[in-house]
């Protein structure tokens, strides 16, 4: 390759770079304004755990101790007593030590009634590790504040503005969009 061809190649490469850079000036920034604008994180990603109560204010939890049994870090502590009005148990205490929790969400998978769920809430950094101990009131509060949550048994559920709990539409379910597309393709094929 002659010297002039080499120089011409270099000039062309620099010009292409300059053109690319100038095109990127006009593109909108990809910046997240996080502390001022909280991003909506899908609840399917395990960010935080919450206890869900029914619409009438009773616990969904039936105190079956499945989550306590399955928890690999053994951070869940449940105390229960016999239900005086009928069969089953009622919760007396539900403690969750987030300092040792590894956010594996095995408790969510094990829960037979979808009482403990994953939510998109994530801002729970504290200055003292001793503050990272959640009790039932705290988990209930998170559950009340949550607009949308996920459990493998019921899928993504959401709370309407009137306070009713409904199942989210299929496009918000994990893999729901893919299933919709599959049905559409199958319909076309058949």
């Amino acid at each position: 390759m002659s010297l002039f061809a080499e120089v011409w190649d270099a000039v062309k490469a620099v010009a292409a770079g300059l053109e690319t850079v100038h095109r990127r000036v006009k593109q909108p920034p990809a910046t997240e304004f996080y502390p001022y604008k909280k991003p909506e994180i899908p609840p399917v990603s395990v960010q935080f755990l919450a206890l869900i109560q029914n619409e009438d204010g009773t616990d969904r939890c039936v105190a079956c101790l499945q989550c306590e049994r399955v928890c690999p870090s053994q951070v869940i502590t449940i105390e229960r007593k016999r239900n005086p009005e009928g069969k089953g148990f009622v919760l007396e205490r539900f403690d969750l030590d987030f300092a040792n929790c590894m956010h594996c969400a095995n408790c969510v998978e094990a829960c037979p009634v979808s009482a403990i769920v994953t939510v998109g809430e994530f801002e729970h950094a504290v200055y003292d590790i001793n503050f990272l101990k959640a009790d039932k009131a705290f988990l209930d509060h998170i559950g009340h504040e949550a607009k949308i949550w996920y459990s493998p048994k019921f899928g993504v559920e959401m709370r309407t503005p009137e306070g009713k709990i409904v199942k989210a539409p299929p496009e918000m379910q994990p893999g729901g969009l893919a299933e919709l597309l599959k049905e559409a393709e199958g319909g076309e094929g058949a």
Partner: peptide
């Protein structure tokens, strides 16, 4: 037992 602070009770609120 010390209680876990709610998101609205955080010490530092971004402003």
């Amino acid at each position: 037992m010390s209680r876990m602070p709610l998101p609205t009770e955080r010490l530092v609120q971004p402003r």
